[in-house]
């Protein structure tokens, strides 16, 4: 049923891609054990420990397509906030001329420094989206929150607010992936793989810019892959 709704939704959003225009859907799917993550559901970790995700929000910006290493399309005003709580936000639709051929997509996980210092912006960049730090300016590029018995914190909570735009603590990450042409592209984010690279027993409260945020952001970006 959910799949059917998804398909209907895709058709609705892409229906204006008429004539010589085409629409490439990029769907972002956080997964665990190869299946889409269900928020607030517990998953098994190695050795009998468990983990649950309450929040997955992430900025995807500056989407660019390539063919044989050459840039063929750069989306204008390319700022998108993925929010796993709201299925609609997890799929991005890139409109392009159907004469364009591509074999790779590149995007930033996060918001660049020029945009981070441009004052109050609208749409997905609106500070009211809760992804802009109030006490020290700058976007939270990715926010992952949840619980795990590994975290000796209040209610076993972990909060990874990965942000920071200024050198040397710029946590923005570039992701480049090979993609098939002419099809819906599923970009999976295996959170089990991510957690195998991060020690959440120790790194469970990152809420300011710094090297911790940079390192964890790099690890998150490293697990993005195209579903085969």
């Amino acid at each position: 049923m959910k799949l059917l709704l998804g398909v209907v939704f895709l058709m609705l959003t892409c229906r204006f891609a008429a004539g010589a225009e085409t629409c490439v859907p990029l769907r972002f799917v956080p997964t665990y054990g190869g299946k889409p993550v269900v928020l607030e559901q517990y998953y098994q970790l190695h050795g009998g420990d468990s983990v649950m995700f309450e929040t997955f929000k992430c900025y995807i910006s500056d989407i660019t397509f390539y063919k044989a290493g050459k840039q063929v399309l750069k989306e204008k005003n390319s700022y998108h906030l993925l929010n796993a709580e709201n299925e609609e936000t997890m799929s991005l639709f890139i409109h392009m001329d159907d004469s364009i051929h591509y074999d790779e997509v590149q995007f930033n996980m996060g918001i660049d420094s020029a945009t981070s210092t441009s004052g109050a912006l609208g749409g997905d960049l609106d500070p009211a989206k809760g992804m802009f730090w109030t006490w020290q300016s700058g976007y939270i590029n990715c926010k992952i929150e949840g619980r795990s018995n590994l975290c000796k914190t209040r209610h076993n909570e972990f909060q990874l607010h990965l942000g920071g735009y200024a050198v040397p603590d710029n946590s923005l990450q570039e992701v480049r992936l090979t993609i098939p042409e002419g099809a819906e592209v599923d970009i999976v984010i295996p959170l089990d793989k991510f957690l195998s690279r991060v020690d959440i027993a120790k790194q469970n409260a990152i809420m300011s810019p710094g090297q911790d945020a940079v390192v964890v952001a790099r690890k998150l970006a490293s697990v993005f892959e195209v579903k085969k």
């Binding site: 004052g119 802009f132 020290q136």
Partner: peptide, 11 residues
């Protein structure tokens, strides 16, 4: 800590 007048009031 605040990098632009527009976002100052958030603090």
């Amino acid at each position: 800590a605040v990098n632009h007048l527009d976002v100052q009031a958030l603090a």
